[in-house]
């Protein structure tokens, strides 16, 4: 990808172009020895109810900035060579990819650890809101999960960092 930054973020209604996203990093430049990748998919079931679709809302501007901040945080923790986060918004059908996280490094350990960190922090620190639209036509906003917060907080405990981008309750 001529001249494109090796660290970038995309929030889009368009389907995730997996082949193009991978082509940013592989074949590589010979420096990276590994690429960690996480792809989140929309499950077809939620709380025992069949799901017709997910609807994703975001805060244009802030969302991109928050994700870039999370990517920056990852770079302070691991010697990354590249990173890419793509998140979909709008209406998604079950099975569709919703989020892509890629991290590259000289070795597999930092690439895989950074990928795990990025998806954990993304879930709790980037302004997206999911609404579930069920097969019976009813709908409900998804509540934040305590497990997600615990997963994200684990990384904080590991580094002892104050976590400057963490969203605190408004009061």
């Amino acid at each position: 990808m001529g001249g494109a930054s090796l660290f970038s973020v995309l929030v889009s209604e368009a389907p995730i172009a997996l082949a193009e996203e991978l082509a940013r990093f592989a074949p590589g430049d010979g420096e990276a020895g590994g690429l960690g990748l996480f792809l989140g998919l929309v499950r077809g079931e939620a709380g025992g109810k069949a799901l017709a679709a997910l609807s994703l809302e975001h805060y244009p501007g802030m969302t991109e900035r928050a994700i870039s901040g999370i990517l920056e945080e990852a770079r302070t923790r691991w010697p990354l060579l590249g990173g890419r986060i793509v998140h979909r918004v709008g209406r998604l059908a079950p099975g569709e990819p919703i989020v892509l996280v890629i991290a590259t490094a000289a070795h597999r350990a930092p690439a895989l650890a950074a990928t795990h960190f990025l998806i954990d922090w993304l879930k709790t620190r980037a302004p997206f809101w999911k609404k579930e639209i069920y097969a019976d036509g009813s709908e409900a906003w998804v509540a934040a999960r305590a497990e997600d917060e615990e997963m994200a907080a684990r990384w904080q405990a590991l580094s002892g960092a104050p976590g400057g981008v963490a969203p605190a309750p408004a009061r």
């Binding site: 805060y59 919703i98 997206f128 809101w129 999911k130 906003w141 934040a144 999960r145 969203p167």
Partner: peptide, 10 residues
């Protein structure tokens, strides 16, 4: 100033 529920992305 924006007000919103806890985030649920990813």
């Amino acid at each position: 100033v924006a007000f919103f529920p806890p985030v649920t992305g990813g």
